[in-house]
Amino acid sequence: MAPTPRIAGSRRRGGSQPRWGLLVFPAALFMVFFFAWPLGQMIFRSFTDPAMGLDNYARFVQTPSGVRSLLETLAMSAVVTLTCAVVGYVYAYAIRFASRRVAALLLLAVIFPAGVNLLVRTFALQVVLRDTGIINQLLMRLHLIGEHLTLIRTEFAVALGMTCMLLPYMVLPIYSVMRGINPDYVQAAAGLGARPVIAFARVFLPMSLPGLYAGSLIVFVAGLGFYVVPQLLGDNGGGRFLSQYTADYMAQAEWGYGSAIGTILLLVTLTTLAIAARVLKVGEILRMSFGGAR
């Protein structure tokens, strides 16, 4: 995990500014002690506690509820990434081409809720979605429905809740990349005879994709670790998240088994990132999204 920026830097820049690399040391030291070391402990434990070997992993593979949780976690994160991508792209596009005042308002509307505690927002959604909640009461009072709609304790509720929580991480990188796209290109396309749809699809969309990829990566990886939202909005039967499943065993101090599950999730995450790195050139994307487009 320890980065070696000095070597990489000196190779590329011919050793002209090696001293700046030293600035990374406090952060690197911090990461080694508070991230890499405990993470290593966890991985070590998964193979040694209670006994040496692959027992913990075998146990997980042989437990249907565990495997089901892993699949549910992956599937739900994928779905949420997709909904965030669709909603987030449209939203970012709206910000990009709105007037300055409206754009500022739209941006605030994304960022402000993200500052409110996740637990509070999840409870708020519970009040909105439940059988005796705002939506159902309103629809029943208007006599649009006779029996309450089943909104809460469903996978739909989990997807909705997670989309709410993760949308900012999709919108902001996309918007950031979109800001760097010169609208003159789109106009030029139109001037050369492209209809608006074609101009968007052939010119604007490809240039904005790095933002979309970056946002999708962040949302997917963050989604894998969710606990509160599925706990409070999900049905907690078939669709339990891996984090919920793990909590049962951590409370019983089964560190080895819990560590194995953690390691499996880590592996899944790293695999995702590795594939993304190959296909999408992650470094380039992140630089474009967060370093500001040039």
């Binding site: 960022i111 500052g115 902001l172 950031s176 370093g291």
Partner: peptide, 9 residues
């Protein structure tokens, strides 16, 4: 924007 992403994260 980058700063906000960092803070929000």
């Amino acid at each position: 924007v980058a700063l906000l992403v960092a803070v929000v994260t």
